[in-house]
Design a protein around this nucleic acid. Structure first.
Lengths: 247, 247
DNA sequence: GGTACGCATGGCACTCAGTGCACTCTCCGG
DNA sequence: CCGGAGAGTGCACTGAGTGCCATGCGTACC
């Protein structure tokens, strides 16, 4: 197996990395070869044979590491999803649920932000290849389902708990994606954290979670709530809870 | 071309329908043949050759009507999307935007509800075939983009207009899908309109749109509650309920 | 009446993604 | 030295999707 000329991304090390030797595992070589070709001649114009030839490995080996051609564009997706799921599972169950899923979204954005050049190149690719855009949807969908499943568990007692879980998860993902795309369009120059915080604050303000806890602020011992009379009762209760800072 | 034995769905007539004669156009014959085979032997176990053989047409004709094998499962998608887009474009610009997109979602659900058996069969199919689930995501994504584009135009003047548009569109689609799936799981027995109204009311209540416009009702649409901050939550809720006069 | 045109369809050959299987090589423990 | 496990490879095969051209059929035009 020959090594690649230049095209080395600071790829996240795959699970089966070889810490002893410095040689990149075949998986990373395939990703590097694939991106080099995708960028210089386009995704659809690149065949699996082109990739494995450049990487100097057998064609069959490609499909040992990636179930499909699309998967090579999202090489760290499984790990990222697992990390997010683990983060959600780590909580003790006493956190405010909406804030928790917002924090999970921040975690995902941080992983994107760890490799700005890689993320930006992938963004340019997915933006102009319909097949990749479709595949990205199925990737994002799994994140959304993970968030929704967490919220469904937390909202198990609520009336319409699954509905609220699905809607809030979708809103969080949409806000995250809005911020992510904005950051990607800036070529990774903007402040990713600030952008996503701002986007998620909107979601939190819409769904009861206290947007920003004013640290060190003395609490009033009287709270005033103003509500439209025709607002649904659960919405009023939610507002009460968030105003009182209980979750 | 021979006609199919039984398997006739009340398919929505395709654009190029032949109003004079009663013979179903080839497109509908292909859909009928495809679903018959998908249901009796599974999606992946059915090849294009199987479909065109059963429909009695040439293989090349399949791809004349459907760009891919997945498309035959969503034969009316383009028309449905066009209808929804037309509905959004039809407004004069003075409607409340959130309510407008909710009405657009109701329109889509109504189209599903027009063919309950077809919708339920497709649901069973997409539920268990990963490839179709992925394709459905790209279908739904186009609806979501249409809603978001409409909201972006309506929110052009707002700060964070595009963010709010994306988030609200995602929430509306999530609520619609939640209601749709609930209806599909009931084999089309539930009241689809009531289910989707309930789901969309949650979204409208979260994002500023008045949930139900109390026509002609004027008085007391604002209620003020004052509570000690350390009062138990249940006590506060009790007070709210009695103030609102609800049980 | 004949001809020319457009259009829907059919047939054929080709590319390429993805799979199943059998083989080799190497490393490792006994 | 042997035997098994696992990584990598070669090969043949299926099936989706495409490009090209031939064929048939109705219609408009001469």
């Amino acid at each position: 197996m020959r090594t690649l000329p230049g095209a080395t991304f600071p790829l996240m090390s795959s699970e089966k990395a070889d810490p002893g030797t410095g040689k990149p595992p075949m998986r990373d070589a395939l990703v590097a070869a694939a991106f080099q070709l995708f960028l210089e001649r386009g995704y659809e114009q690149t065949t699996i044979d082109d990739i494995v030839t450049l990487a100097g490995v057998g064609r069959r080996s490609f499909f040992r590491y990636f179930p499909s051609k699309e998967d090579v564009v999202f090489p760290d997706h499984e790990r990222c999803l697992a990390d997010m799921t683990a983060f959600l599972a780590a909580g003790g169950g006493d956190e405010e649920p909406v804030r928790r899923v917002c924090d999970a979204a921040r975690l995902v954005l941080r992983m994107y932000a760890e490799n700005p050049t890689f993320s930006v190149q992938r963004y340019r690719l997915t933006k102009q290849v319909p097949g990749l855009r479709a595949y990205e949807l199925s990737v994002v969908w799994r994140y959304e389902r993970a968030l929704a499943e967490y919220l469904r568990r937390r909202f198990a007692a609520r009336r319409d708990g699954t509905l609220q879980a699905d809607v809030i998860a979708a809103a969080v993902v949409a806000a995250h994606n809005n911020a992510l795309r904005s950051w990607l369009r800036s070529d990774g120059q903007d402040d990713a954290s600030a952008t996503v915080d701002h986007a998620l604050a909107y979601v939190q303000s819409a769904f009861g979670g206290t947007p920003v806890p004013p640290a060190g602020e003395q609490p009033e011992d009287v709270v005033v709530v103003v509500s439209r009379r025709d607002a649904p009762l659960w919405r009023v209760v939610q507002e009460i809870e968030s105003t009182l800072g209980r979750g």
